[in-house]
C-alpha cells in the first residue's frame, strides 16, 4: 500500500518571526519545522501501511529555499521518501494553486491514499486537501478520525459535532485529519540517522510542466489587502456568587445564543 502525505514546513510557532511588510504574508526565510498538524497525518499513514502488511509512505511538500528540516522529521518518523517543490516563483501561491502543484506530484506518485492535515498552523486556509481531491477527481473525506482499508475501498469514521459519521468510499481518495486523532511517534535515533540517506527529490515549477505565470502572486486569484493587529482581549466580568450566580451564567449563555 502506498500512502502520500502532504506535509507543510512552517516557521516555528514558538518563534514565528514577522510579516513581510510588502506582501503582508509570513516571512518564510527562516528555519522551518514540520507543521505539528501534519505529524498526525504522517503517523496515521505509517500505521495504515503497517496494518496493510507493507508498502510505503511518501511525502509531498512545497517550501521556499529547498528547506527540508521539517521533511527530515517526517522521514525520521518512518516515511520512505519525499518530493519537494521549491522555486522563487512560488512566493504568493494561494491555496488552489498549491493544490494544483501538489496534485501534479501526487498523480505521478500514484498512491492508494492521500492524507493531509485539515489546515496548516500558519496559513489556516483549511481548503487544500479538498482542492487536491477536486484537482485529481478523487473522493474527499474530511475530519477523518479512524480509517480502515479493505482492498480498494476505505471505511472512515468522520468526526462531527455530535459524534462521528461512518463513511465509505473507493480508493484512491484524499482524507484530511485533525490534531489528536493519533499520537505521533517521536523519531528514534536509528530513524534520524536513516533519514539522512532517504531520497528527497527536489523539483522546480518548470519540472512540473508549469510556468511562473501560473503560480505565485501572478497565478493566484488572491491578494492580502490589509493586516490588522488582533484586538487585545478585554477583561472578563467577575460575578460574586451570592447563591444565584448560576442564573447569571444561564443569562449570559442565552444572550450569546449558546443555549
Amino acid at each position: 500500500m502506498k500512502v502520500a502525505v502532504c506535509v507543510k514546513q512552517i516557521p516555528d510557532p514558538a518563534d514565528p518571526g514577522a510579516l513581510d511588510p510588502e506582501t503582508r504574508t509570513l516571512k518564510r526565510d527562516v528555519k522551518l519545522i514540520l507543521d505539528e498538524s501534519d505529524s498526525y497525518g504522517v503517523e496515521m499513514a505509517l500505521q495504515l501501511v503497517d496494518a496493510a502488511g507493507g508498502g510505503e509512505v511518501v511525502l509531498v511538500s512545497m517550501a521556499p529555499n529547498n528547506e527540508r528540516s521539517g521533511l527530515s522529521t517526517a522521514l525520521a518518523m518512518g516515511a520512505a521518501s519525499a518530493t519537494l517543490v521549491s522555486d522563487p516563483a512560488l512566493v504568493g501561491t494561494d491555496a488552489l494553486t498549491t493544490a494544483k502543484i501538489l496534485g501534479k506530484i501526487i498523480s505521478d506518485q500514484e498512491p492508494d491514499l492521500v492524507i493531509a492535515g485539515s489546515e496548516s498552523s500558519d496559513g489556516y486556509t483549511g481548503t487544500v486537501p479538498e482542492q487536491i481531491a477536486g484537482v485529481l477527481g478523487w473522493p474527499s473525506v474530511t475530519a477523518a478520525k479512524a480509517v480502515a482499508i479493505d482492498g480498494s475501498a476505505m471505511k472512515v469514521e468522520r468526526q462531527t459535532d455530535a459524534g462521528y459519521d461512518e463513511v465509505e468510499c473507493s480508493l484512491p481518495a484524499v482524507i484530511s485529519v485533525t490534531a489528536g486523532v493519533v499520537e505521533p511517534r517521536y523519531p528514534s535515533f536509528k530513524g534520524i540517522m536513516a533519514a539522512k540517506s532517504k531520497p528527497v527529490v527536489q523539483m522546480t515549477v518548470a519540472d512540473l510542466g508549469m510556468t511562473a505565470a501560473e503560480v505565485g502572486w501572478a497565478g493566484s486569484g488572491q491578494e492580502v489587502v490589509d493586516v490588522t493587529v488582533a484586538p487585545v482581549r478585554e477583561a472578563g466580568e467577575k460575578i460574586e456568587d451570592d447563591g444565584e450566580a448560576h442564573l447569571k451564567i444561564i443569562e449570559f449563555l442565552e444572550s450569546v445564543k449558546a443555549i
Binding site: 528540516s69 525520521a76 517521536y186 523519531p187 534520524i192 540517522m193 533519514a195 539522512k196
Partner: peptide, 9 residues
Amino acid sequence: SMVEPVLEE
C-alpha cells in the same frame, strides 16, 4: 553533520 539533526529531535 548529524549532530544538529539528532540534538534537534
